[in-house]
Design a protein around this nucleic acid. Structure first.
Lengths: 345, 345
DNA sequence: TTTAGCACTCTCAAGCTTGGAGTGCTAAAA
DNA sequence: TTTTAGCACTCCAAGCTTGAGAGTGCTAAA
């Protein structure tokens, strides 16, 4: 790809830019007029022919204009895409929404999904941030109804885990409270492995709770543990290339079905190319059939080693990458700040 | 509508049945063959003409077959639709899934949405059950990180409300615990109005918490308080009449946007016709434009006066009503049982 | 009241025509 | 050597025509 001349790069990025704008194949003459190029359409044609033979462009049919190939998009995203600055007013408006919201991690991820969907006019997804390794801080056991108990577990980072438990027999709130404070004292600041290494002398009830605590913390430690917020699904349907196509349905199913979504997140980490911390997966990269017409822009947020999460956008391959990447990066930074202030040190 | 002869009703229901099956306008001759009718196509034609003039059927164009009007569907759903029994094996499979799941209300609603979407092959929605009037039972205040506190409030029914609070200044876990147990003692078994009527002598911190408790309980008392689980959105896109139409997008947006969803729930209560506890809203009933091509089948679950919720299905007007109504009713019963066993008395 | 027969209407799909867009090639110009 | 003008060629998209098929309404007879 380094054999490309500057002019070829320039023309390639113009084609992609114009195609993203118009959603129709772009021809040589059209480009010269639209962008007031200092060369004739014949020259452009020669360059287009070259770019086509290099595999960056293709023609839907012999007498049509050019449209980018996946390789074309990839080169564009990797080298040619120019930054789109998000206006300060927009940045401030968005920040405002987050900071004036009550400090609840779930609410934040929900808001992030909503903002991301609106700003990118595509479907968005945001995972709840979580810790790589949870350290126990505090336990509460709250009697709910009959033999049901709500277990609330707070980690050192301030992450809240909770689960309902149904006991074999009914237990008073007093017993629960004393069990909770006993366990809290024993487990303070310990990770799952440390807890499992302990040999404790506990009664049956406490031991049952301990088992559940370990299970819950293990689950929290797994890579993608919590819920994934999804928003803006209908945005994807608005794109002309998806009007009434099977492709749109297949793509949206990926966002609806948890297992598929997990696949997506791990695939992206593996195959996506990275642009300043933002991963871009174009056309499923040959591994996810369902996304053959789509691109995914993802970023992680938070602090590695501490609480982290993933957020991103799924849209058509013909996507305004500059803008989308900027927005994803901005929101990733914003969420990082929020999470660091509130969960991490 | 009582002027209809039995034969007209019969033919109308056949037309609707066949149209739901085939998604194409149904003609007289086709019907005679398909259903081995004991009359000629000419006779059927006469009846079809009559039903058309009565407004139950219409022709997309002069020489096409008939398709049902909204009124036709309405009559069908009100009187003519025959029950579809859900096979015992299916019932058992579904029950199983619920009973072997850990007893968490949120998980149940999620599962219900998923099952409903799968069984009805349409989009589903399920609200989290909640109480008409919450009565205070227990409070925990858990220090999370810095000045952040997690408030967990349990109601008499066992419903869990929680919220993050950021205090003006940092407070120890001991102080939080003592404040929580003090407030728990004072507020036990009281509703919002009763709490507001109390005149208590509290210090600043306790008073702050009380304000938040009242706020949280008020919010829980509002009609549709919690989250609404939605599933199966892509099912709607599979329907032929929605292939690539704007209608599908508009309908799905209703499920994506909370305010619209709330409108939908209240509209249905007002305008829908009821079939044995199951409400059916056909074609938006002239009030919700976005749903002009859709029908909604809804039911409430739980026990009125205690914990209740709503669940239902959104699909094309051309929907297998018998089957859908049965499934909605079945799941409504199942969830009612679960909720009553676990939240109500 | 039902049925057979018939003329009529309309859609849908297929095939055709036409205009336009866009290309590749060639030969001349820079 | 690179760029440009000119031209022949290809192909699509839209519009039109046509014929088959489906379905109707009407009328008159059973």
């Amino acid at each position: 790809m380094n054999e490309l001349t500057d002019r070829q790069r320039f023309i390639l990025s113009l084609v992609i830019h114009e195609y993203i704008r118009s959603a129709t194949p772009v021809g040589s003459q059209h480009m010269v007029e639209q962008y007031h190029l200092d060369m004739s359409s014949a020259t452009v044609r020669n360059e287009l022919a070259e770019l086509t033979s290099l595999g960056y462009l293709r023609q839907p049919h012999p007498s049509a204009g050019r449209i980018p190939t996946e390789d074309g998009y990839r080169l564009f995203v990797g080298n040619l895409v120019q930054h789109t600055e998000i206006p300060d007013t927009v940045r401030r408006t968005i920040s405002h929404q987050f900071y004036q919201m009550r400090q609840d991690v779930e609410q934040w991820t929900r808001l992030a999904a909503s903002v991301l969907a609106y700003q990118s006019r595509a479907a968005s997804l945001v995972t709840i941030p979580h810790f790589d390794e949870a350290h126990f801080k505090h336990l509460e056991l709250i009697s709910s109804r009959g033999r049901q108990v709500l277990m609330v577990l707070v980690t050192v980072g301030g992450e809240i885990l909770q689960r309902f438990i149904t006991l074999a027999e009914s237990v008073t709130q007093e017993m629960l409270s004393s069990s909770a404070s006993r366990l809290t004292r024993l487990l303070l600041n310990k990770s799952v492995t440390e807890i499992q290494a302990l040999s404790l002398d506990l009664d049956q009830l406490d031991r049952d709770f301990l088992t559940i605590i370990v299970d819950e913390m293990k689950q929290a430690d797994s890579l993608v543990s919590g819920e994934i917020m999804v928003d803006g699904l209908t945005n994807v349907l608005a794109e002309p290339e998806f009007a009434g196509s099977e492709d749109a349905r297949r793509a949206l199913r990926v966002l609806e079905e948890k297992p598929l979504l997990h696949d997506l997140l791990s695939e992206t980490v593996l195959h996506g190319s990275s642009v300043g911390g933002v991963q871009v997966l174009i056309g499923g990269e040959g591994v996810m059939d369902a996304l053959s017409q789509c691109s995914v822009v993802l970023a992680r947020y938070g602090t590695p080693g501490m609480a982290t999460g993933t957020l991103g956008v799924l849209g058509p391959m013909r996507m305004p990458y500059g803008r989308t990447i900027s927005i994803v990066r901005f929101l990733s930074g914003l969420l990082s700040d929020l999470v660091n202030q509130n969960l991490n040190g």
